[in-house]
Amino acid sequence: MSNTAQQEMAQQNGSPAPDPIEKVSIVISRGSLEGVYPGLIMANGARMEGMEASVFFTFFGLDAINKSKQDKIKVATVGNPGLHMATWAGAIPGVSAMVTGKLGKEMEKLDIPPIPEFVEMIADSGAPLYGCKASVDLFGLSDDDLIPQVDSVITVGEFYEMSAGAQIVFT
């Protein structure tokens, strides 16, 4: 439902229209292609609507801002019922890369950028990117392992602090 449709409905019901969302904090916690894209699309979409947005990359989601890994993110072909593929077939070497390649081509047709370009686009839109400190420590990473667009590596406490007034979206 569009914002205006919602407002019209609220007016008819006599209740005040809900406030529009002004700020979102997106958490990306997974490292598969299908785990990373939704959060990126939501962050970019928020900025496109003129909302404030930030992205917090945690656990395997960190791969999306890891220099050496962000262009190697693949579709999980094992144990992924959405692919409607036998688990043994998804485990065959090369299948994950093939499915990722095919999906990438389809996305390019829709003008959806590859992950490294998409992350850069979101940073350019003015949304700060944060790495999760616990995950950076866990994987033995340093700032140099992350792409230069990353604003900083922050604790979960700092994440909540900077999310004041925001809707937190966990993906």
Binding site: R47, G50, D124, G126
Partner: peptide, 14 residues
């Protein structure tokens, strides 16, 4: 893109 957002802060494409 960076400049698009400074020219149109409330959403460049829209």
């Amino acid at each position: 893109i960076k400049e698009l957002y400074s020219l149109f802060p409330k959403g460049p494409a829209k």
